[in-house]
């Protein structure tokens, strides 16, 4: 009974943060800011839903799959965010207007292999 309540709480918190992530995707200005919202909230939200599923299921093979899903989301989603933001910067997608500083732009060494030039 208690386990089920906690599991449902995890699932609802997860859905709430997934919603905030999607809202951030709509409201924030450029690709980098949107990635911030998408990566953090969707990682935490989806992990919350999967962990809640694990609590509801217990140590069955189904519950264990949900737990493995949590581990893989934590490992893969930051890497995906890194790959997308790096690719976006290399493709010269501009940062939003209010941007204060872009130190990455000044690093010549990392840009040797850049294919697309303005």
């Amino acid at each position: 009974m208690i386990r089920e309540t906690i599991g449902m709480a995890f699932i609802f918190v997860g859905i709430a943060f997934d919603f905030f992530g999607v809202l951030g995707l709509v409201r924030l200005p450029d690709v980098y800011n949107r990635l911030q919202a998408a990566t953090k909230c969707v990682t935490f939200g989806s992990a919350g839903i999967l962990f809640g599923t694990f609590l509801l299921e217990g140590f069955t093979s189904f519950g264990f799959k949900a737990l493995l899903g949590v581990a893989f989301i934590f490992l893969t989603s930051p890497v995906a965010a890194h790959a997308i933001s790096r690719a976006a910067h290399r493709a010269r997608i501009p940062l939003t207007e209010g941007t204060v500083v872009d130190a990455y732009e000044d690093d010549e060494e990392l840009k040797v292999n850049t294919v697309i030039k303005k």
Binding site: F17, F20, R27, P29, C41, G45, L95, T96, G98, A103
Partner: peptide, 23 residues
């Protein structure tokens, strides 16, 4: 903390951000 921070940013009416890439 990160998630609460993002939730605050996207729910705030003005979206108070000051983005940039630092080293």
């Amino acid at each position: 903390k990160a998630n609460v921070h993002v939730a605050y940013l996207v729910l705030h009416p003005n979206v108070p951000i000051k983005p940039g890439i630092v080293k």
